[in-house]
Amino acid sequence: MTVAESLSEVAEETTASHRASFRWQTVLPWALAAVIIVLCLVPFFLVIAISFGRKIEGAAWVWDFTFENYQRFFVGTLWPDEVTFLYLQQLGYSFWYAVIASLLAVMTALPFTLLLTRLSRKAQAAWLVFILSSLSLSEVFIVMGWDILLSNNSGLPALFKSTGLTQWLKDMGWFQVLRDWGLANPRNVKFKTSEFATILTMSYLVWPYAVILLYPALSRMDPSLSEAARTMGASTSQVIRTVILPSVRLPLVGTSLLLFVFLLGTYVAVTVFADPAKHTTAVAIYTNIRGANLNAPFGATQAVILLVSASICLTLGHMLNRWAEAR
């Protein structure tokens, strides 16, 4: 083959490969980008747009640009003549449940995950199967399980009564304390409805997530660090306080924040276990959009506020982390 021939062959090769790359390296990403952008972003934009819409009595709603819905959320419709903080209070309950439940989950999941990472690879895999199965279990089923466990005529209260635990509590005088906390009626303990049951179930809901989120950081932690501390005379509690906790502070804060945001949207656990007066924004969104109220714009407004408060918390957490890092 002469040089000229081979060169022309090379030239053909390169143009052919250019043509091929034009086809799939240019068109596919942009087509995919269009699909993903539309499907991932447009729903959020719609929620925002509709939150400024107006409800028509007896009909659906119309596009508009009014802040009435936001005004209603923060101070009520009749402002300034009359002020109501009902919706803010619901948001407050959303935060309250989510904060306590996520902290509870992270605090109990941390020692568990630490122990998990010290096991053999095989044992870890077995535990992970169990945890992932529990993680993927629908909120519906989890609530169902806890509902049976906590409901007044079966489960734990019945167990308390039949084993005489209730009587014992009464004899010891602790029953009154439970009544003060709203965890008992005159005859027996009761967990439905209570904040205790709500937070317990929510915490259970995200506990496997806490393990899965903490797992990478903890399993990458160099065990020789703790060993080094131990050779320098640190006790177990000192090792945990001075070596382990500082090195997982970042994932710990990150996990708490993610679980918190996730729990802001909890619906079933709240409707089943919480007193109607202590329902959350998520329940209100549901009621407005698909439930009895049929006020889509106001539901959208509440969804936007939930989303914005979630983002504010994430940003604040991020800033706090960076501030702590810089210190």
């Binding site: 083959m1 040089v3 081979s6 060169l7 090379v10 030239a11 090769e13 390169t14 490969s17």
Partner: peptide, 8 residues
């Protein structure tokens, strides 16, 4: 003697 600079 054959130029292969552009050959992938």
């Amino acid at each position: 003697g054959r130029n292969i600079t552009e050959l992938p």
